[in-house]
């Protein structure tokens, strides 16, 4: 075989000084985090028998309370749908204020985006705790928590969707003297509508996942059944609840994926 005219290049480049230090630092942070999280090989190795014991006591799943659990699942979906719907509707005007170059100036955009960031930063369970205090135990608190969480999510992404629309139609209407609100309603929102629907479907999927555990803090839905199942060592019922949650969440995700595909096409 002929030898190549040039030397064969190295398979990998040797990292520079800063690169090497960076790798070491990342490795140290991961080790430090594992230690903080109580990493224990002994406990991990001793867990399979306990898991096996749990499943032997949990299996087969209970079908005794299926009617009650089904109604609780319906309530869970009602919390998710109503909370997501209210959140999506309220997100639109808020997103108009957050989108750069659409309705208001940069200062207002920044303030609204910071508020939306705060709404997203607080976990949905924390919002549920707040609303349980504010409006009492039950699904209403859960619905409000989902609505606030959805506003944080959709408000930001609706704004991004509007910023990413083709600026041409808006410019053509600006040249005819149209007001900003008319341009937003006539050109920007119709162009962003498919993206809004996609984002809204993601918000609904997120709301369904969140609503299944809001019951842990008394904010309605099937989560309370999960908590009671474990508290009373009624593992068959707890496993039934987990399986119901999995079926519903996967089902909603699949429906969402099909609808998104129909609306957005295969590209997105």
């Amino acid at each position: 075989m002929d030898s190549p005219a040039r030397a064969v290049p190295h398979r990998f480049n040797r990292p520079g000084g800063i690169g090497f230090v960076s790798y070491v630092l990342v490795a140290l942070v991961i080790l430090w985090s594992l230690e903080g999280a109580g990493w224990s090989v002994d406990r991990l190795l001793s867990s399979p028998p306990k898991l096996a014991d749990f499943f032997s006591r949990a299996w087969p799943p209970s079908t005794h309370n299926l009617d009650r659990l089904a109604w609780k699942m319906v309530e869970t979906l009602q919390i998710a749908v109503s909370g997501a719907a209210i959140g999506i509707v309220l997100s639109l005007p808020i997103a108009l204020l957050a989108a750069r170059g659409v309705l208001v100036g940069r200062g207002v955009n920044l303030v609204v985006r910071i508020i939306l960031g705060f709404l997203r930063a607080v976990p949905d369970l924390a919002w549920a705790l707040v609303f349980v205090v504010a409006v009492g135990l039950g699904p209403f608190a859960g619905m409000l928590a989902i609505a606030i969480d959805t506003i944080g999510f959709c408000g930001r992404f609706f704004a991004d969707d509007m910023e990413n629309t083709d600026p041409g139609p808006a410019e053509a209407l600006t040249a005819t003297g149209a007001r900003r609100i008319d341009i937003a309603a006539s050109a920007v929102i119709p162009a962003a509508l498919p993206a809004f629907v996609s984002t809204g479907l993601f918000a609904l999927e997120k709301a369904v996942r969140a609503s299944t555990i809001l019951g842990l803090v008394g904010a309605g839905g099937i989560g309370i059944e999960l908590k009671v199942g474990f508290d009373l060592f009624d593992y068959p019922t707890a496993v039934t609840v987990i399986l119901m949650i999995a079926v519903v969440v996967i089902g909603v995700e699949q429906i969402g994926a099909v609808l998104r595909q129909k609306i957005m096409g295969p590209g997105r």
Partner: peptide, 27 residues
């Protein structure tokens, strides 16, 4: 009292032709 016709036509794609023309009255 002015108007702009662009290279890319700049219509709102999801709306009807009639809606797009009516938008010309928004000024």
């Amino acid at each position: 009292r002015t108007g702009l016709v662009g290279q890319k036509h700049n219509l709102v794609p999801r709306l009807s032709v009639l809606s797009n023309v009516i938008h010309g009255l928004l000024g």
